[in-house]
Every structure is written in structure tokens, then in C-alpha cells.
Design a protein around this nucleic acid. Structure first.
Lengths: 351, 351
DNA sequence: AGGCGGATCTGAAACGATTCAGACATGCGG
DNA sequence: CCGCATGTCTGAATCGTTTCAGATCCGCCT
């Protein structure tokens, strides 16, 4: 009969200590403060660890005891698919990660669609909230954690740092550009207007209730830049080219008098470009188009767009969080935007 | 004189219990098993918690006690910038995240360039290794954790699950397509050949030492698909359009007799497209081009490419990991690839 | 009346480490 | 030979929960 294998318990620091007849403190020191024990003993400890299959202190226990995890949560209120699908979002996130890495911090992606549980139960040292409606359940859950928190593109809240974009100026410039060219009937493809809300046409009267700061401010900029022009609003539910194409198609069919389209993202604009092709409309002769974000790929498509410092935004967010973790109170930052004129907007045809 | 504020210690479950004169176990139950105590008491507990500013059990302590964290680590050996910069990678990751979310798991991004520490010290229930050279320090660190692990596009290792791509077939088809069109002098822009290695020309003899499975297999496929053709290899150090452009420029200048270019990613191919433009070469009349990955944007560029089921790959990885966590032993999967012929390859000019 | 099952609640032992304040020995200067 | 600094190592408390095995009480069935 084979010897009853002992129930395969995990090897702990204590086991290693017992094996060598030393104190657990010593084993801990072997890993964390090599200068606190003699080199020979340290070697023996590490050797015993290898023999026993012990691969270092348990990160969880260590974090509990030390009081920090080295992890920063990034809160999304959309499925992560969409988070990554937008190159601007991906670039931003990469930049945040890069900046935090300098401080030994890693990113935990928290997708919270219809559920605040991830925010409440994540072991993190800080939070970054990328887009969440003002006054939402999710935002409340975030604030309840009382952790160092950076709000991105949201109105600042007490106790948090914030990094925003000067959406107003960029949007105004875009609209003013169209206005100056002579456009007076302008379609607008907005980003989401509220969590989980489907896309579709809406009126300026309803614009007051927009829950997302970004959407609200860009719209405000559009209005300011094209005084006297008529804006035909359609919201999108998802920031994807497919959605952009579908909504643009709807809008252009319903309002054939439109001579220009303002899109709140390049992803949407690229979809709108496809919609225009499908309708046989030439850009810019028959339809002018201006996007937002200025994705790398937009240059190739000759798409005019509002540029934003995406990478810098990520860096600022990372730095703000690091400052918070250091007990400082970083100033809020507001980053500039500006219109990049390419070839997708021209004077309207004279019918 | 104001009452000396007690040193602001964190409010714990124990404090709430003490406040109410009940056992900590009861407070814990109030949060975790509402059916284990009377509704009134539960309300009182939750009320007291609110009064004291206690926002639920500490995730870290809970994880330690329960033995799981609900977090899966994704190991990269490149800065996260690049991880996100490639739309194929972003899409894949989004898909993984989506799949894991169904099991209440979140993703922790572990960037391990020149440093295995993140792998060794991350509190995770499992690991996904996205691209790491065979036999690398990093891979060793991963295996040392003895956690449920899924290897992506790498040769399977004992004790792990693996999801791979049939790179060979796709690459062979691409090369065969060019070969059939009559190309005999073909340039190749490869992905990285080893961790941290800079790009540049290399020879077929050196091809045996390629550390990355993906690079090695695609190259093998290229060779098999174009027997008798001469392949001019250039490695890239980074999977970016800029790098693709730079390396393509070098290669085309050094080898003006080339009539076609095989690129191991669409990102590189899109860079090569720009290089061709800069050299005044028309595609496909003067230069044929085939990419790999079939990014959404490649359709618009009329770029022929090898398609891979990126989203499904992510899903498979997620499912494999979930199976491992459930104590199962999932079968390794190998996903198909196939050439998508568009307009970027044609017969070579007859000089 | 006795016994039993369920509903509530509790005590105390983990979970696996870190860290602080010594204990002990050794070497050195005076 | 004393005092002191230095170099090594240890004991024990602590981090904040969860969970298992009861303990208690109550009503109900027979």
C-alpha cells in the first residue's frame, strides 16, 4: 500500500522556516531584506524553499499585511470589447499603464456594466474612472471606496483628482469651420447620451439631460460654433464604426437637406464615411464631415478632425494618481484640443 | 481645546460588530449570507456600517481567507503601449475579458519588460501568457507560480492549456498566392525574432534561432508556399506602422529587384504600404503586398491578408482558463487561418 | 411532557505573511 | 575589563476577513 500522501496543502513561508529550524521572520527577511541576515543563511533558506517547491511569499498575504496591492483599477461602464475597440481609448490606456509602471503599479480592468460589484470588491490601491455618468450608481460606488481616485473627462468631485479635455473649444472650432464654409443644415452624430441608452434622433431640448460630460460639452461647442445653423441630432449607443454607419444612414435619409455632419468621434466618422459612400454622396463635395479624436488612421482617410493629446492625457492621469498615492493633492488639469483641417469638409453645393 | 481625534484607523468589520455588540461572524454574514440572520438584525448591521463609514468587507482580507481573488493576470513582455497599439491585440484582449467576465473574473495587465517581478508578485487566480519566447526567464517565472495558465501562440507546456493559431497554413497560402502570380524575389517583414532584439535584415540560416513561435511558424509557412523563390528577410523590433515603414524602406532600397512583400502583420503591412508610396511604387502594379491578421481597416485599404479568428481566439482562451479553474483539463486548441485575397497582389511587371 | 428540527447567532481558528522591538553574541576602543 | 555599536536572528502581534462547529431558544408534533 502506497504511503498516504498528505493532503497537498500549499507550501507556506512557515513550512520553509520549520524545515530549517529558523523563525518565519528570518525566511521573510531572506526575501524582503537580504541585508538583515547572513548570506549563507539566506542561501540555505532559498535552497530549502526550492526543495519544498515554495515560490516566494504569497502576494495576497503580503498585500494584506503591507496595506497596498500595487494595483490600480480602471473602471469602465461598457463591455471591455468596446473599451479596446476604439484606438483612442486603447492608446490612452496604454499611456496610463506606461506611466504607472514607473511606480510599479499594474492596471486592473474593471468592467461594470449594470453591476457595481467589481468596484466594490476589487483589491486596488486606487481607481481611474474613465467614463461614467454624473450621479450614477457606479460613480457613487467608486466614491464610497474612499480610495485615491482620478476622474477622466468628468466633472471633478471632492476628494478626487480630475483630468479633462477642453471639448468645448475643439467642438466649437469644428462647427465654426463648417459654418464659415456656408453650411446651415448640419447633422450631428453624438456619443452616448446616457448609460445603456440606445441611439436615435433627439432634440436640443433633451440635450439638457445628457449624463455624460463629454457628450454634453461637445454638443455645447457645436452649438456655439455654428450660431443660426440648424443642428439635427442623433445619438449613438455604441462608439463603433458600424453604429456610426447605421445612424448616419438613418439621419441622412431622414434629412436629405443636410450638407454636413459633425461626429463626436473618428470611429463614428469613419462609419459615416461609409454611409456616405453607400448613399452615393461624395465627401466633401456632397457632404462635409468632421470627426473628433484625430486617430492615426484618420490622416490616411483625409478626414478633418479635432485633435486631442491622447497620450498626454494618459500620462497626466497616471501622474495624478501617483501624486495622490504619495499623499499629495494634484491640481486638476484640462487639456487642449484643436481642429485639424484636412480634406473632408468643403463649401456646400449650390442647389 | 478640541477633543483629540483618535488616530484615523480604518473601520473594520470588527468595529461594526463591536458597535452593535454582536459577533464579527454576524456582520460577515450580513454581507455574505443574508439568509443566515434575521432581516431586522441585518438592517441594523448595515445601518451601523453606514454610520461608521464602513463600506463592506475588505477585498484583500476576503481574498486571503477565501483563497481566490477573481483576477486573471495577462502577461506581456512588451510595454503596454504596444500591446494596445495593435488593433488585433486589443480585439483579442477585449474578447478574453468579455469571456472571463461571465465568470466574474477581471483582467490584470502585467507588463514584464526586463523584469519578472510583476509575475511573481501579482495576486491572481490564473495567468494568460500572450507572447513570450520559449525558454525565457519570464516563462519560467510564470510556470513557477503553478497557477492555472493558458499559453497563447506558444508551444504547450506540461501543466498548462494552450491556444494556438495555424500560422503555417495561412502563411503558406499567402506565399503560394504570390508564387502562383509569378513572384520569385520576395521580401519578408517578420515580427520580432527574440525578446528585445532590434530589427534588421537576417538570413535564413539564422531563422532556426527564432525564439517566438509565431514568427518562426509564419516564416516556415512562407518558405513552404514559395518553393524556389528567394526570400529576403528583415526583422522588425516593434509591431507598429512606423517600424513597418522604416524596415520596408530599408529593404526595398537594398533589394530593388523585389516584386512582392510578405508582412507578418497588417500593422506592418500598412506601414509598408506607406513605404511603397514614398518610393513611388504602385501597389500592386510595381509591388505586391500581403499582410497578416486581417484587421478591419485592411478591407478599406484593399489589402490582401491572412485572416485569423481573433475574437474566437480570445473566447477560447477565456474558456480554457475557466475550465482550468474548475479543475478540468481543457484540450489544446489550434485555430484556422486563411488567405483573404483583395487587390494588393498582382503579377509582377515584366521588365 | 418530551423530543426534535429550524432559525439565529457566536467563538475561535484559520488564511499567509510582515514588522517591531528586543535578545544574543561578537568585536572594538579606551 | 567595561561599555557600546554592530550584525544576526527571533517572538509575537497584527493585517481584516470567513467559516465551521456548535450553542441557544422557540415552537410544534405526537
Amino acid at each position: 500500500m502506497p504511503p498516504a500522501k498528505p493532503p497537498a496543502r500549499r507550501v507556506t513561508l512557515r513550512d520553509v522556516a520549520a524545515r530549517l529550524g529558523v523563525s518565519p521572520a528570518t525566511v521573510s527577511n531572506a526575501y524582503n531584506r537580504p541585508d538583515q541576515l547572513s548570506p549563507e543563511l539566506r542561501d540555505r533558506v532559498l535552497g530549502a524553499a526550492r526543495d519544498l517547491g515554495y515560490s516566494g511569499p504569497d502576494p495576497l498575504a503580503r498585500s494584506l499585511r503591507r496595506g497596498r496591492t500595487g494595483v490600480i483599477g480602471v473602471v469602465y461602464d461598457a463591455p471591455l470589447d468596446y473599451a479596446f475597440a476604439d484606438p483612442a481609448a486603447a492608446l490612452f490606456l496604454g499611456s496610463v499603464a506606461q506611466t504607472l509602471q514607473g511606480a510599479g503599479l499594474n492596471l486592473l480592468l474593471l468592467s461594470c456594466v449594470q453591476d457595481t460589484a467589481p468596484v466594490r470588491t476589487a483589491s486596488v490601491d486606487g481607481l481611474i474612472v474613465s467614463c461614467s455618468a454624473e450621479g450614477s450608481e457606479l460613480l457613487r460606488a467608486v466614491l464610497a471606496r474612499q480610495l485615491p481616485t482620478v476622474l477622466v473627462e468628468q466633472n471633478a468631485q471632492p476628494g478626487t483628482a480630475s483630468v479633462t479635455l477642453d471639448d468645448l473649444t475643439g467642438a466649437r472650432e469644428a462647427a465654426a469651420h463648417l459654418h464659415a464654409l456656408g453650411h446651415r443644415e448640419i447633422g450631428v452624430l453624438t456619443l452616448e447620451v446616457g448609460p445603456g441608452r440606445a441611439g436615435g434622433p433627439f432634440t436640443l431640448e433633451a440635450a439638457g439631460q445628457i449624463a455624460y460630460r463629454t457628450t454634453a460639452r461637445r454638443l455645447q461647442g457645436y452649438r456655439a460654433g455654428a450660431p443660426g445653423a440648424t443642428l439635427h441630432l442623433t445619438a449613438t449607443g455604441l462608439n463603433t464604426p458600424q453604429e456610426g454607419e447605421a445612424r448616419a444612414l438613418e439621419l441622412l435619409r431622414a434629412q436629405p437637406q443636410l450638407t454636413a455632419l459633425l461626429c463626436m468621434s473618428d470611429v463614428l466618422a469613419q462609419g459615416a464615411l461609409r454611409a456616405a459612400h453607400r448613399l452615393g454622396l461624395r465627401v466633401p463635395q456632397d457632404l462635409s464631415l468632421i470627426g473628433f479624436d484625430d486617430l492615426p488612421s484618420s490622416a490616411a482617410l483625409d478626414l478633418s478632425s479635432v485633435w486631442q493629446p491622447t497620450a498626454e492625457k494618459g500620462e497626466r492621469v497616471g501622474l495624478a494618481l501617483r501624486a495622490l498615492l504619495d499623499g499629495q493633492r494634484p491640481p486638476d488639469v484640462d487639456l487642449p484640443t484643436r481642429l485639424v483641417v484636412r480634406g473632408s469638409a468643403a463649401a456646400p453645393r449650390l442647389d
